[in-house]
Design a protein around this nucleic acid. Structure first.
Lengths: 343, 343
DNA sequence: CTGAAAGCGCTTACAG
DNA sequence: CTGAAAGCGCTTACAG
C-alpha cells in the first residue's frame, strides 16, 4: 500500500507538500496541489487512519453499546440507519460493542485507549460508577434508556412513569376501574417498573384500590398474552381493561379472545405499548414509543457535546410519545389533552 | 490521560519495560512486571489504540457494510449479536458503514486507509469492480447476498434459484398446476429474480406452461398480499397454490381469504419465504432462510481468511434452508427428499 | 511558496 | 534482566 513518502517521491516534492495537498491546508501553488492530488489518486493513496488518529488524538468514532445477546432486547439496524448514515457523512464512524447491563470496564477501556470519541448506550445500564467516571472526564455519552433515579447520567428517552400514568388515567376517565397490567418480563426491568409505577400512581390518584392480581409478568411471546388473559378471566372480579407491555402480548390476548368469542372493546379494552408490524392489522390502540426519534436526539446530543467548547451540564431529555387510537380501545378525545394522538 | 511515559516515570523504569509488562512480552522480572501493571492500573493507563494500530498496521476492525436507509432491507442487530459478541471476545471490533448497492468507493478508502482488516457486505452489491480490487489485494471480505452470476466475489448465502425450484417442484408434485408467485418488489432484485428463475425452471421441467398472469410484484406490506390474492382470484384460471415472497405477503393473503370465506389449504395452498414473528400463529408453511447461520458462516470465513497464511481461493458457500411445514400447505413427506424439514 | 525536522504513543530489534 | 534508539505514517510549527 502506498504511503505519503511514496507519493512525495513520485511527485518529486516533500511529504509536507503531499499532506498539504491531501488536506487542502498550508500554502501550495494550485498547480502543485492539483498535480499531487492526481498522483495520489493514481497511486490509490489514502492517508493511514491510525497515523492520523495518533496525531489528532481521535479516531472519529462513536461507540454504540448494546446488550449482550440473550437479553430480551433487540434493536433493528434500520432504526439507526438514517442517523448512522448522517453521522457517516460527517466523517464519524460507528463502532459496535456488547456489554452486559452491569458492566462498564470494557467501555472505559475503549474510552481510555482513544478508540472512541463518544458513546451511545442503547441498553439499560445499572452501573452509576461508569457514568461518574465519564462525567469527570467530561466525556460525551448518552443513554437511550433512562437510568434509575439519582444516577447522574445523560439520557434521552420517553418518561415511562408518565406513560404508565397517562395510560391508566385515560382508562379510568373512560370508566374503567378494573385495569390489568401485563409486563413483558423482568428483563425490561426499569422500563416496565416505571410504567407500572405510573399505573399505580394513577390508581392512587383516583382512589382506586390496587389489586395484586391485576399485575402479571410474562414474556415477549404470544403465549404470554394468552396466559395473561386466562389469568385475568379466572379472577372473581375480572378487569375490564388491560394495559399490555408489548403489541405481541396484546395480539396473544386478542387471539385468545377470539377463541373465547370475546370482543373488544366491549368485553375488554386493550392498550399496548410499542408499535409492531401488525399492530394496525390487529387494530390495537397503541402508545407508540418513538425509538427512531430517541436515537436521533441521542446522537444529536453527542455531536453537540463533542463540539462543545465548554462543559455542558447534565442533559436529560424526555420525549413525548404518540397515541395511536385504533379499535381495542377508543377514548373520548375530550379526555386526551395530555396526548399527541392519531386516529 | 496517562501515556506510557507517565507510567514509566512513576514506576521508575523505561517505556520498554512498561510495554513489556502490559503486553506480557519481553524478559522482565516477575516482581517488576507485577509492580508496573499495578501502577498502570492505578493510573488508569490503557495503551493508545491509534499508536498500536500504526505499528501493527491493523486496527483489528471488521467493517459491516449495510445498505443506505430507504432501501427495502433491514437487519436486526440481534442477528449479529451472537457472532458480534464472539468476535468482540477475539479482540476485533465491528464498524458500521452504509453504502448504496452500486457504490464501493468509500469502502475501498476504508480498506486503503487501514481502517478495516476485513469487510462483510450485508447488502446486495452490483459492483463487480470493487470485488476485483479486493481480490487483487487478497483482502478478506464476504457478501451475505449472492451476487450476479460471474461476479468474482466470496459469498455465503442460500441458493435462491434452487429454493424457487424446489418450492415449485414440491407444489407440482402435490398436484398443483396453477402456481402463483408473488415477489415483494423490485428492490429485492436478485433474490426475487433467482427464486422466480427457479420457479420457472421447475415449471419447464414438468412441461407446465408459464402464465405471465401468475407472477405479480408487490411490497413488504400486508396490502401487497391482499392485492395479489384479489388479482389471482380475478383470473379465469385461478392458481391453486401461491408462493409468497415474504410472510407478510402471506399474512395479507390469509387475511383476505378469511374475509372472502376461503380456506387453506383446500381453496388455496400457500408457501412463504422467510420466517416472521407471527408465521407460526398464522400457520404458514415456510421456507426458512437461515440468516443467523449465514452471518455466522460469513464471519467465520472472514476470520479464517484473515489468519490464512496462503491465498485462499474463491469461496462460495450455499447453505441449506429448512422447510417448516404448517397448515397453509402440507406436502406428502414422501416427496421431501430434497428438504430439511420440520413439522 | 516549499521542505527539513520534531513529535503523536506506542513496539521491537538491539546493545549492554 | 533492562533501557536507549529507531521507526510506524502522518501533521504541523518553523525556517528558508
Amino acid at each position: 500500500m502506498a504511503n505519503i513518502r511514496d507519493v512525495a517521491k513520485r511527485a518529486g516534492v516533500s511529504v509536507t507538500a503531499v499532506s498539504f495537498a491531501m488536506n487542502g491546508t498550508g500554502t501550495l501553488s494550485d498547480e502543485n496541489r492539483l498535480r499531487i492530488v492526481n498522483i495520489a489518486n493514481e497511486m490509490n493513496y489514502t492517508p493511514n487512519r491510525a497515523a492520523q488518529g495518533l496525531i489528532s488524538g481521535s479516531l472519529n468514532t462513536i461507540g454504540l453499546v448494546m446488550p449482550k445477546p440473550g437479553t430480551d432486547f433487540s434493536l433493528d439496524l434500520e432504526l439507526i440507519g438514517e442517523v448512522g448514515a448522517a453521522i457517516s457523512e460527517m466523517g464519524y464512524h460507528i463502532l459496535l460493542s456488547w456489554e452486559d447491563t452491569f458492566g462498564g470496564k470494557k467501555v472505559l477501556n475503549m474510552v481510555r485507549s482513544g478508540q472512541v470519541d463518544a458513546l451511545c448506550f442503547v441498553l439499560p445500564m445499572d452501573e452509576g460508577e461508569t457514568f461518574k467516571v465519564l462525567n469527570d472526564m467530561n466525556f460525551p455519552y448518552v443513554l437511550t434508556t433512562r437510568p434509575k433515579e439519582g444516577v447522574p447520567a445523560d439520557w434521552v428517552d420517553v418518561d415511562n412513569i408518565d406513560l404508565g400514568f397517562k395510560a391508566a388515567v385515560m382508562l379510568i376517565k373512560s370508566g374503567h376501574k378494573g385495569i390489568g397490567f401485563v409486563s413483558p418480563g423482568p428483563m425490561d426491568y426499569l422500563v416496565s417498573c416505571d410504567r407500572f409505577t405510573g399505573y399505580q400512581m394513577a390508581l392512587k390518584h383516583f382512589d382506586i384500590p390496587i389489586h395484586a392480581d391485576y399485575f402479571i409478568t410474562g414474556s415477549h411471546k404470544l403465549e404470554a398474552g394468552k396466559r395473561a388473559l386466562d389469568h385475568f378471566l379466572s379472577l372473581p372480579e375480572k378487569p375490564t381493561a388491560i394495559i399490555a407491555g408489548t403489541a405481541i402480548i396484546a395480539i396473544g390476548m386478542i387471539n385468545r379472545m377470539r377463541e373465547l368469542g370475546l370482543e373488544y372493546p366491549q368485553d375488554i379494552s386493550i392498550i399496548a405499548f410499542d408499535e409492531f408490524a401488525l399492530s394496525k392489522e390487529y387494530e390495537i390502540t397503541t402508545i407508540h414509543i418513538p425509538t427512531q426519534r430517541i436515537i436521533h436526539e441521542a446522537f444529536r446530543f453527542l455531536i453537540k457535546k463533542m463540539n462543545a467548547e465548554r462543559i455542558l451540564k447534565q442533559t436529560q431529555i424526555a420525549l413525548q410519545s404518540e397515541l395511536y387510537i385504533r379499535k381495542t380501545f377508543v377514548p373520548d378525545i375530550r379526555i386526551l389533552d395530555d396526548w399527541d394522538y392519531k386516529q
